[in-house]
Design a protein around this nucleic acid. Structure first.
Lengths: 138, 138
DNA sequence: ATTGGGCCCGTAGCGCAGTACGGTGTCAAG
DNA sequence: CTTGACACCGTACTGCGCTACGGGCCCAAT
């Protein structure tokens, strides 16, 4: 079975060498066997593992959360309900984030709608909204 | 005109003393005059300034962006259109953020819908989606 | 006069997810 | 046998927005 150096893993997975070392330090990737000279010797499994991490990140999970997901998937016999629960928590978090952003967007849109962009900065409704009391700051 | 110590400003504005010193270091608040013993001597204007910063943060602007907004508002005679343009950029950024979050939320929802939470972790469709190739990682 | 708070300063640390650096050792090709 | 690319290591740095620390001065009240 052919093995991969850290550089080959990096090229094939699209992440940097330093990132792989970092993931190892953080416990997201198992410490691999070494060749005589100390070079890391990876099997193909590490590529799957890195893709797992990358997909998790894409779904908005933090590395800490991905680590938890990984432990879950390794503890055979434990119920998949744990995973589902984590996903639910994540979904609720995202929902809240979206709602907060919508509120901010609405406020900004109202502000720019009120702005004719015609006057000087001292009459800008956007700045006025931020600087509620109108008066030079001296 | 009565002046305020940094602690009074902190209490009235609701931010910490250290935060005010930090804002000063970052140039968001002008360096105030000092009393003989070196104590900062603030006028009421600083409270307005801090509220400006807080509202800007509430609208999703970074401290760097707030600083730019502040410079704009101080350069009298400059057009309010600059401010409006920045607000537009911000709105577009928020729109993109929301869209990205919606995509992630959709993906997570599809995954949890497919999950009966009945099997063991090794048959969890959520983990399967992350770990595309099904096989123990040994 | 002493006590307890408030204020001064520069520096270090947090959490996140890497990225970069610098010095040394190793490997494969020519 | 030399060269150049790669690998090793620990440590430090990035950006963001604070927060905390330690040591020392100052001020008002008792």
């Amino acid at each position: 079975m052919k093995t991969l150096t850290i550089g080959q893993v990096a090229r094939e997975s699209g992440v940097g060498v330093e990132t792989i070392r970092f993931y190892q330090r953080e416990g997201l990737i198992a410490t691999p066997p070494r060749r005589s000279a100390g070079y890391r010797q990876y099997g193909a499994g590490v590529l799957r593992r890195i893709r797992f991490i990358l997909r998790g990140k894409g779904l908005g999970f933090s590395l800490r959360e991905i680590n938890a997901l990984l432990s879950l998937s390794l503890s055979r016999g434990r119920s998949c309900a744990d995973v589902k629960a984590r996903a639910h928590v994540k979904i609720e978090g995202i929902r809240a984030q979206i709602a907060a952003l919508e509120r901010v967007k609405g406020a900004l849109e109202r502000l720019t709608d009120a702005c004719t962009a015609r006057g000087s900065a001292s009459m800008c409704p956007i700045l006025d909204a931020l600087d509620a009391d109108v008066e030079g700051d001296k």
